[in-house]
């Protein structure tokens, strides 16, 4: 079974700037109530753009079983 990549946010360290939401090409990341970023894992295609954009480096791409 092929492994897929999904973005994962370390919510405790997230600064909620929204750089990830702007970088996401499909709008699968959003800042939730001004507290931290949340990824819609169902929609995330694992492109890694949010990981690159995150200034606090709190987003990591995690391999999940497809």
């Amino acid at each position: 079974m092929a492994a897929k990549r999904k973005a994962e946010v370390d919510q405790k360290s997230c600064v909620a700037c929204g750089a990830c939401a702007k970088a996401c090409p499909i709008g699968a990341v959003a800042v939730w109530k001004g507290m931290w970023a949340k990824v819609d894992t169902g929609r995330c295609v694992g492109c890694g753009r949010c990981e690159k954009a995150c200034p606090a480096s709190v987003i990591r791409m995690k391999e999940v079983e497809a």
Partner: peptide, 11 residues
């Protein structure tokens, strides 16, 4: 030095 929006981290 770091990522473009690094200011946002400690703004």
């Amino acid at each position: 030095l770091f990522k473009p929006r690094s200011w946002c981290v400690y703004c």
